[in-house]
Structures are given as C-alpha cells and as structure tokens.
C-alpha cells in the first residue's frame, strides 16, 4: 500500500522524461491522492492516537 504513491510517482517522472506533460500532471494528481490515503492509513495507527 505504501509503495503505491511511489509507483505512481515513478510513472509521473517517466511521463515527464518522455515529454508527456499533461499525462504527467494527471498521474501526479493520482499520486497525490494515493499519498493522502497512505497518510490516512498511517497517521494514527502507529501510536493509536486520534487525529
């Protein structure tokens, strides 16, 4: 699960390297969403503290 944002960021950087600007921005949006979700999963679980 935590690897998903990084996988999407790899795809984003790949799109930039290939010159696909618009596609890279859309994949970045997906990566941002995945990162927020990953943070949600891990923000409190480690210490069992409520947000």
């Amino acid at each position: 699960m935590m690897a998903l944002p990084f996988v999407l960021l790899v795809l984003t950087s790949l799109a930039v390297a290939l010159g696909l600007r618009q596609l890279s921005i859309w994949i970045w949006v997906a990566a941002l969403a995945a990162t927020v979700y990953a943070f949600h999963l891990h923000a409190t679980g480690a210490l069992h503290l409520a947000l």
């Binding site: 935590m2 960021l9 990566a31 943070f39 480690a46």
Partner: peptide, 25 residues
C-alpha cells in the same frame, strides 16, 4: 524509514517533479 517518513519522501519526490517540469518544459 517509518511510515510517516515514507510519506514525507513521497512529498519530496512530488515537489521535485514540479521543478523538473519547469526545467523540462
């Protein structure tokens, strides 16, 4: 890295991509 550390690393990569877009395009 702990979980929160990994999220911060993702944020660094994402921020760097913005600068990369500026340099590339």
């Amino acid at each position: 890295p702990c979980a929160l550390c990994l999220v911060q690393r993702a944020a660094f990569i994402a921020a760097g991509l913005g600068f990369l877009l500026n340099v590339r395009f």
